[in-house]
Nucleic acid binder design. Structure first.
Lengths: 349, 349
DNA sequence: CTGCCGTGTGCAATCGGTTGCATTTTTTGC
DNA sequence: GCAAAAAATGCAACCGATTGCACACGGCAG
């Protein structure tokens, strides 16, 4: 072990080749599992040992430059502080790392221009593919990635019907989740149900609103009477503002929200208005983020499989990159209604 | 599926050079703000226009290979689903992106072997530097990064006294936070105070325990009598287990925890034991993660400046990478006690 | 008018691997 | 035992940028 390492320069393939007494190309093949069989066992062993002795790590930059595959995947998230995304990103990173891929993370912050910049930057970085987590529907990422020839997979978001059909998606059946929430409220006796929707332009908001409508229709309730609001973002603050607007008109005894954070904002507004949950108002959320069982009152919400979505998305992309596996299909996981204490039977005034 | 995407090949510097009627090296200089002044304005303009017309994006791989600077920074996190980290990571990513750097994210999952693997992989990726978020004290990352010549910055973690002195850190004054929590409980009349500590081997756990001790000492309370527990991880489940153990012996009316998640676990155990908070037990947390004001009861906790820590760490690393700015100093931000409803005056039985 | 200097560009080496092809060695078939 | 096929390895050209150095040109001082 050389303790006085003046040159922090890592050993190169040439060093290993010299140490093993072979040509650099032989080292390259010996290290590559796919080309390993083209080398005799004896030489491969000698190379492996020399590499280990020198602590050789091939430069991903050089390899990527020549081979065109950088073993790098870009992950785009609108807002990492939204608790929906960390489990997804973690599952993606874990799945990618298991196959030797590195994760490039970027926040789009919902900004279209920033989204474009990030996709271009990832392409410049030589990313082999992109995983797009729930971006705004109108975002340029999907089209841009297609133009740049970057394989792309969507997660936590349905494939938009109109857009490029080459992208596959891994999400939840959001409409089914909302239908279940509405059915639950109806079963509790509620007839005048409102919906606090997600921000315009997001696929999730549209799907959940659609599910809400279907739920009402299935129960034979009139759609037109249902109070609707649209939050400006998937955030607690936006949920509070939207709920305040809804309360100003009133006329409902229960509300479904498009997202747990929005539900928390609704809690805030209800508290300010002096309305008890669930006594004066039943509330449902969506996502079942951590701690939703510990808030006051524990939130009835729709649980989705974040980690599974992330894992499937990563594996699908990897399969597409390797090209060995048959192309994966889009998947819509089934969400599950989790009943807690924020919903209660309708009490006639 | 459009398989007839003819040239998914991005334009290279040679294409731009040809289009502008200059040599590739001239293009390189014209695109580099630092070398821009060595080129005549007329040529620079021609190059810029040609580049824009072709939609040229320099390959970061090639540039990195030659220049040794990849404009890439690795961020290591133990567990992204711990709500402490997303705000930190987001702030880091934002600061890096603003200066044209790309973020490589990896989860160490607290695993030492995985940590080593990740650092090596990031080095192989040509990362220019590393930001290490609160890793276990004994982890190999700091030493390994030093050996590989990778600049490293710590965030949410104090510089370990014994270890390599070249790393700078951006964290909170954890001990001060715990001292404040203890002082608050003492002011409420509590005399028998317990501490639910973080996992062994983490710097944060040690600092917070130390602050707890200092707080007791400052109030003139006996250290030996204080019940102590150590959670096996910073998680709600581990907090619950540790709290159950503490309750088995009892003898305290208030407890400080090393982390909000641990406090949530403590809530769970207390609920199971039929002990009311704060009626039967006062509880404090640490971090003030989102929603701590909405849990039941709202948690008295120590707020730290996650985003600021992340931003400072990123900027310090960038400053070190550019070498232009004077080397940054380690910073310990001052935490703030946020009093809510999980603590109440001691009621003699 | 010469020589020197500064400025703006071009030239070509280089970063560290990968890979098609050539060449050598070994194995196989008859 | 020899030719042909197969396996193992070497050779050298890349990938796409950066950068030290050389060179051409024009201006300026002596």
């Amino acid at each position: 072990m050389n303790r006085d390492a003046p040159p922090p320069t890592r050993p190169t393939i040439a060093d290993v080749a010299r140490a093993a007494g072979v040509h650099a190309s032989t080292v390259s093949r010996a290290m590559d599992p796919a080309a390993r069989h083209r080398i005799s066992d004896a030489v491969a062993l000698r190379v492996t040992e020399a590499a280990a002795a020198l602590g050789y790590r091939p430069s991903a930059l050089a390899a990527g430059l020549r081979s065109g595959r950088s073993r790098t995947v870009g992950v785009l998230v609108p807002d990492l502080t939204n608790p929906v995304f960390p489990p997804i990103v973690e599952a993606i990173e874990q799945s990618l790392a298991a196959r030797g891929y590195v994760t490039l993370l970027a926040n789009t912050a919902g900004d279209v221009e920033r989204e474009r910049l990030i996709v271009e930057r990832m392409a410049a970085q030589g990313a082999d593919g992109l995983i797009l987590a729930s971006a705004a529907r109108g975002g340029p990422a999907v089209a841009l990635a297609a133009r740049l020839g970057l394989p792309l997979v969507l997660v936590n978001r349905r494939l938009p019907p109109g857009e490029d059909g080459s992208a596959i998606s891994f999400g939840s059946d959001d409409a089914a989740g909302l239908r279940a929430a509405v059915a639950h409220l109806v079963a509790l006796g509620h007839r005048r149900i409102a919906h606090l929707g997600g921000p315009a332009g997001t696929a999730t908001a549209a799907d959940r609103l659609q599910g809400f409508r279907e739920g009402l229709a299935a129960a034979g309730l009139v759609l037109d009477a249902a109070p609707l609001a649209q939050a400006s973002a998937y955030s607690r603050a936006a949920g509070r503002v939207a709920m305040q607007a809804l309360l100003a008109t009133g006329g409902f005894t229960a509300i479904t929200t498009a997202n747990d954070l929005l539900a928390m904002g609704a809690y805030d507004a209800l508290e300010e208005a002096g309305i008890a949950v669930p006594g004066g108002m039943s509330v449902t959320g969506f996502n079942d983020m951590p701690l939703m069982d510990r808030v006051a009152p524990p939130l009835t919400t729709v649980r989705i499989q974040h980690a599974t979505m992330g894992r499937l998305a990563a594996e699908a992309l990897l399969g597409r990159l390797c090209g060995t596996e048959e192309p994966a299909e889009s998947v819509r996981l089934v969400p599950q209604l989790v009943v807690r204490a924020s919903t209660a039977a309708y009490a006639s005034p």
